[in-house]
Write a protein that binds this DNA or RNA. Structure first.
Length: 436
RNA sequence: GUGCCUAUGGUGUAAUGGUUAGCACUAGGGUUUGUGGAACCCUCAGUUCGAGUUCGAAUCUCGAUAGGCACCCCA
């Protein structure tokens, strides 16, 4: 009995599965992603953003200092590793810290400011997967580095919203808040902490813990008791110093001018500790199947990140990131087709070994002429090759047999009406232009 | 990290604790050496893993793993 089981279970599927929370993206899914990235880049380029790619791995300290120790992302969810050389690296959990590292490293302060980048690629967080949440997930980011002007906040939001609209989102509104800068945030946090201390006995354990580490986070707690307490909690906006108040007011004015609807959400603080002043989130109201809201994009200003990373000067900056996995999954997502996929218009059929020998040369001629094809070089029978062409719904077939190989010609067959014509290889491209 | 639900070929499914785990699709091959959506035939392929209960487990129990959902958190 045991022997039989051991033998029959020689197949080990465990090793053949992708890691938890990570998936292969193939077929239509691939095109959905690719199409989104192309459209997003196009919009970003029109607004003056330039592309940048930074490493997927960074020194662990970039995130520990940038995103912040004490955040869940760094403490619980970061993929850290030690290299053979002894370096402590981490898979990036988000795009911003690496981007700022690149800005400082390359001395981009000397360029005309602000410097505007778009950037996309996978991020990694060791979280438990669920709907719209993966351990490897894709973000598309737009960032403006080197300006503290409120219009940059507005521009970033505008570009992000345009991209989302192009992807098919409608009736989007954003939640927005300002959490102040170093002038006013300290006083606010102090006040907030005092307030919670007064209600300490009612506060749930989780939130009591957060009071020590990150009091701001208590504001977006989902615990009903905390929510109740939050009703009367002091809000950051009324604590804003004059310059922050002015900045925030201007951002809102820009949004109104652009007819971008927003909700002032005084409980919005966001989990990454580098945020200052403006923070915002784009929420899809019934993103989940049960109608639970899903954040599809978010961002804000991060004026002190550069210094946290070790720069001598502050670099005021603002950014917007879009959760691409959630966009592509959304019911409203309109499939944006990437330019690169061309549906094959021609199915290449070969017959006999002499023809097979020359087949790749013919395919190369077609490739150079930018004619996408499909083929079944591995097959021999004409009938089965035609059947596949039929199945794949390809309008034309090129038949290349022994006779044609000798005569340097091919047969071009119209699959719809079964008519066909022999064409000399030298005339082929010309002929194909006509029929298209 | 926590809780609830789930797990049968590549896919979708069937099997009162009791035959050799059945069916469909897909895939590969054939009937058919140079002309098509069909039909027929053949083939590949499965009880997630590990313990336990039992004469006997896909089925019951426990554990592990993975997936879904929710919490935490976030995109």
């Amino acid at each position: 009995m045991k022997k039989v089981k051991t033998n029959s279970s020689s197949k080990n599927n465990k090793n053949l599965a992708s890691p938890k929370g990570m998936r292969d993206i193939i077929n239509e899914d691939y095109y959905s992603f690719q199409g989104f990235f192309e459209k997003a880049q196009e919009v970003a380029v029109y607004y003056g953003f330039k592309p940048i790619e930074t490493p997927i791995l960074e020194d662990e300290q970039v995130f520990a200092r940038g995103v912040g120790e004490g955040t869940d992302i760094v403490d619980k969810e970061m993929y850290s590793l030690k290299t053979k050389g002894g370096d402590h690296l981490a898979l990036r959990p988000e795009h911003t810290a690496g981007l700022m590292r690149a800005y400082v490293e390359h001395g981009m302060q000397t360029l005309p400011q602000p410097v505007m980048f778009y950037k996309y690629g996978p991020n990694f967080r060791h979280d438990n997967p669920q709907r719209g949440r993966y351990r490897q997930f894709w973000q598309f980011d737009m960032d403006s580095l080197g300006s503290d002007k409120s219009i940059m906040d507005a521009l970033i939001i505008k570009v992000g919203m345009s991209i989302l609209e192009e992807a098919g989102a409608h009736n989007l509104s954003i939640d927005i808040n300002s959490i102040g800068d170093k002038e006013c945030r300290g006083a606010y946090i102090k006040e907030l902490t005092n307030y919670y201390k007064k209600h300490l006995n009612v506060l749930p354990a989780v939130d009591r813990e957060r009071l020590k580490t990150n009091p701001l986070r208590i504001l977006d707690s989902k615990d009903p008791k905390t929510k109740e307490i939050n009703e009367n909690a002091p809000d950051s906006i009324s604590f804003l110093c004059p310059s922050c108040k002015k900045h925030f007011k201007e951002v809102l004015e820009y949004l109104e001018e652009m007819n971008i609807p927003y909700n002032l959400n005084k409980n919005l603080v966001r989990g990454l500790s580098y945020y200052t002043r403006t923070v915002f989130e784009v929420i899809e109201e019934n993103g989940g199947e049960d109608g639970s809201p899903l954040t599809i994009a978010g961002g804000g200003r991060y004026d002190y990140l550069a210094r946290q990373l070790g720069s001598k000067k502050d670099v005021p900056a603002v950014g917007f990131s879009i959760g691409v996995d959630r966009i592509v999954d959304a019911p409203w997502y309109k499939k944006l087709s990437p330019r690169i996929i061309k549906k094959p218009k021609i199915y290449f059929i070969q017959l006999g070994s002499e023809a097979k020998l020359k087949s790749l040369n013919i395919i190369e001629i077609l490739r150079k002429a930018h004619i996408p094809i499909a083929q079944s070089l591995s097959r021999d029978s004409l009938g089965s090759q035609l059947a596949i062409a039929e199945k794949l719904n390809i309008p034309f077939a090129i038949i290349f047999g022994v006779k044609e190989a000798i005569e340097d010609s091919v047969i071009v067959r119209d699959m719809s009406n079964r008519s066909q014509e022999t064409v000399k290889l030298s005339k082929l491209l010309e002929y194909l232009k006509e029929i298209k």
